[in-house]
Amino acid sequence: MTLQVSNLSFSYGPKQALKDVNLSVEQGQFAALLGPNGAGKSTFFALLTRLLTAKSGEITVAGYDLSASPQAALAQMGIVFQKPTLDLDLSVRQNLSYFAALHGLSGKLANRRIDAALDRLNMVERSGEKVRALNGGHRRRTELARALIHNPSVLLLDEPTVGLDAESRKDITDHVHSLACSGMTVLWATHLTDEIQMTDQLVLLHQGQILQDGMAKDLCDGLDLQTWFLAKTKAPA
């Protein structure tokens, strides 16, 4: 398993945000973490990226235990956060160079990786532009390009299409699906069912608990995904 989460629980004071979460995602699998607002998706991502740490449960990324070997585990992750994390006053390339340096890449190697990442996202011609001048879709593509510079094993995306128009959403969703096809492990948090394909692993998170985990086509059992999602999350967990 490239990404393995076992018995993970987390509370904000008396309020339990996640309860006994278990999850496994195999290499090359696109796993959609589907849940309504407030389900605990962002808390789960904060724990996966070690912005928060839980006292109970284990997270393993590409074989590295996140609590025992945090740096090795983080080096295996590419992350696209829900909130934009680009420096608006720097150019696209400067933003990517900064990230590359945080991962120990510099000089020609960093430039090669940045060029490849920009090329993959069709952002080469924008590399000299300041991020402030980019539209929302291009900013998101820049963040996705950035997350791929260090060739991560696991790509984590927390509602990456929030605020984007339909075309940009489709571009990004399709691109990340193609990354999974080429062997990258993807965990994609969303509350939008049209971003999920029937061949994806579908993990339904509701009120801090995983209600369902399986292949989307098996779970829906012929039902429209949106209808299935609403039916599952209407009743209390």
């Binding site: 990226t49 070690r50 912005l51 945090p70 740096q71 090795a72 983080l74 080096a75 992750m77 992350i79 956060f81 829900q82 909130k83 934009p84 994390t85 680009l86 420096d87 990230f99 945080l102 991962h103 120990g104």
Partner: peptide, 10 residues
């Protein structure tokens, strides 16, 4: 949110 980028560096 930009602090997250720094704090998740390896």
């Amino acid at each position: 949110g930009s602090m997250r980028l720094l704090l998740t560096a390896p």
